[in-house]
Simulated assay, not measured.
Amino acid sequence: MPYKQPISILLVIHTPDLQVLLLERCDFAGAWQSVTGSCEAGETLIDTARRELFEETGLVVSAAQIVDWQYSSDFEIFERWRHRYAPGVTHNTEHVFSVQVPANSVITIAPREHTQYCWASIDEAVTKVFSPSNADALRQLAGKFKG
């Protein structure tokens, strides 16, 4: 299996009233997150966001529905996942996106990736996610979309 690229997306999924979708990881019990995923060779960031959204939730949206925050951050890859990257790769660049979906959206999780999902308020979601960059994006969500 080829190594993952150290370039990924974080996609915050929310309803019009800013309920946020969170997914619990299979490989890290109790670790909740928004949709994430590494870019594949030749794939644009928007294409990665659309692919990961579908793979992890079953939701299909157009590229125009995804909001590119024009923001990225670098973080150290957790030791438990470094084997997925080329030797010596220790950091990842994560690009942030969001998408608004109807409150009654049907979610179909990928059972090999996630054990369950929940909808949460932004405040609840911030305390529930394990990733500091995910928590930061959630904090920014209200300012971007309220009103």
Rank of each mutant, 00 (worst) to 15 (best):
E40I: 09
V126Y: 05
G37A: 01
E55C: 08
A135P: 05
C39A: 15
F75W: 12
Q5L: 13
S34W: 00
Y71K: 11
D123L: 04
P16T: 05
I77E: 02
Q100P: 00
H91S: 10
V89Y: 02
Y85W: 00
V67S: 14
P16A: 07
P87C: 07
L10H: 02
Q100T: 12
I7E: 14
D136W: 04
V126E: 13
R50M: 09
P6G: 06
L22S: 04
V61T: 14
T108A: 15
S121D: 14
L23R: 01
L138T: 00
N104V: 00
G42V: 08
F97E: 04
E113F: 13
K146Q: 10
F75Q: 11
P111I: 06
P111D: 13
K128H: 04
I46S: 04
T57V: 12
S105K: 13
T93M: 09
D74C: 05
W69A: 09
A64S: 12
G58V: 03
E43I: 01
D68R: 01
V101Y: 06
G37C: 02
E113P: 01
A29T: 08
A64K: 09
L59S: 03
K128I: 06
A31W: 07
S72L: 07
L21V: 07
R51H: 08
S98P: 03
Q100H: 05
R25Y: 09
E76L: 14
A86K: 13
A110V: 01
V96T: 05
G143N: 05
D123V: 07
I7S: 07
T44N: 02
N134G: 14
H91P: 00
E76M: 09
T44Y: 01
G37T: 06
T93A: 15
C118P: 03
H14Y: 13
L138G: 00
V106N: 14
W69Q: 09
K146T: 09
S72Q: 15
A103R: 11
Q5P: 01
L11P: 11
I109F: 09
I122D: 04
A64M: 04
V61S: 03
D123T: 14
S62E: 12
R82N: 03
A86N: 08
L11V: 15
H95I: 02
R80N: 06
R84Y: 03
E24M: 01
G30A: 10
V35G: 02
V89L: 04
G88K: 05
F75V: 01
G37E: 02
L141Q: 05
P6H: 07
D17C: 10
L11Y: 09
G143T: 08
L59A: 08
H83W: 14
K144W: 14
F54C: 05
S72M: 12
V61C: 10
V61R: 11
A110H: 15
V96S: 07
A103S: 13
T57M: 11
E43F: 00
W81S: 14
L18M: 13
I122Y: 01
R50E: 08
I122Q: 03
A125N: 10
R50I: 10
H91W: 04
W81I: 15
H91Y: 03
A103Y: 01
V126D: 10
V99A: 05
L21K: 08
F130T: 12
T48K: 08
P87D: 15
L141G: 04
G58C: 06
G30D: 11
F130S: 12
G88D: 09
A137S: 04
W32M: 06
V35A: 12
F130N: 09
V96Y: 03
